[in-house]
Nucleic acid binder design. Structure first.
Ligand SMILES: [Zn+2]
Ligand SMILES: [Zn+2]
Ligand SMILES: [Zn+2]
Ligand SMILES: [Zn+2]
Lengths: 162, 162
DNA sequence: GCGTTGAGTGTTATGATATTACATATGGAG
DNA sequence: CTCCATATGTAATATCATAACACTCAACGC
């Protein structure tokens, strides 16, 4: 399966692999993977959840890596631009990509109860959206796909009303 | 086609029809379609584009219908909850629904050049997203689908680089 | 009639998210 | 060495959104 996020997994390994993939990608494309950028990605990877920019900034500040919003936002811009991190529009928050390096359109499953987020793949050009775009002559360059609902765990813990 | 928004159309008629549909829906469901709520919807309908809450509020203020943010946000909450208006997460803005009264999951085509927005239908349960949700046991309750790109008009006006 | 209640509105204050502008550092190209 | 591009540090501000409380008014039971 593609969508980890609602299940336990080898967290350390997943983090190490993601960092290695990003490092390789930056080396290959001559991108500067600076300490601040690296640390922001590490924070997101280690928490493995959607975090607000100011929440990330709090951690940076504690570590002496910058205390003002632009520091966090600039690092996030870099990471988002290069596909290492995704922004969850619905939450005004950011989350580390689970397939770094690969070119992909992410889709998210967001639990309204526990705020867990799972990343899946979307095919923006397929389906009704692609059809509508083609019919009107619209050129899709990028897509936001975010489903809200209940994750398996929370679904069970909700009391069955019927 | 379903997706108007990039083409000229009978604006007055479209506005009248939408207001009538919303009025009917409110009467049938015993919802209070108050002056503020009505005016906010009218503003969105007449502009026929995505507008920020504060932009709407400016108009309300000029008309003496309330000058503080909560006035606008409460009216928008009502309109969004009942499906008469949709929020465009990507723009932090609101737009009047083009199929009021019908139960539907909207998808949007947003032009990055001119900010025009067209509403299409999405089928959240279909496609890869529905598949991923089903596989993980996630229950989709609501979905945000927003495609960014270039509308037909802007696509032509952009200089052809090759 | 009259108090009660609930929904809507008006208003103040504040919180949360994001950007602009400018100063400073650093490392490579010419 | 000098110039330039990129990244970072910092202050100020812009933009988006909500909490809390007071007030109005219409519907309801008595
Ligand atoms: Zn991803
Ligand atoms: Zn959950
Ligand atoms: Zn709609
Ligand atoms: Zn356009």
């Amino acid at each position: 399966m593609d969508t980890i996020g609602f299940e336990a997994h080898d967290h350390k390994g997943c983090m190490r692999a993601a960092l290695a993939a990003v490092e390789a990608h930056c080396t290959r494309h001559k991108l500067q993977f600076t300490p601040v950028r690296r640390r922001v990605l590490e924070i997101l990877l280690s928490e493995h959840r959607a975090m607000g920019a100011y929440e990330i900034l709090d951690t940076l500040r504690d570590e002496g890596l910058g205390s003002q919003p632009p520091v966090a936002y600039r690092a996030l811009d870099f990471l988002v631009s290069n596909g290492f991190v995704h922004k969850i529009e619905r939450l005004n928050a950011f989350i580390a990509c689970t397939h770094p390096g690969q070119d992909h359109t992410p889709a998210f499953l967001i639990c309204r109860q526990c705020d867990a987020v799972a990343e899946a793949h979307a095919e923006p050009s397929k389906g009704m959206l692609g059809r509508a775009a083609a019919d009107t002559g619209f050129t899709i360059e990028q897509a936001v796909v975010e489903a809200m609902g209940l994750c398996p765990q929370c679904r069970e813990s909700v009391h069955p009303c019927a």
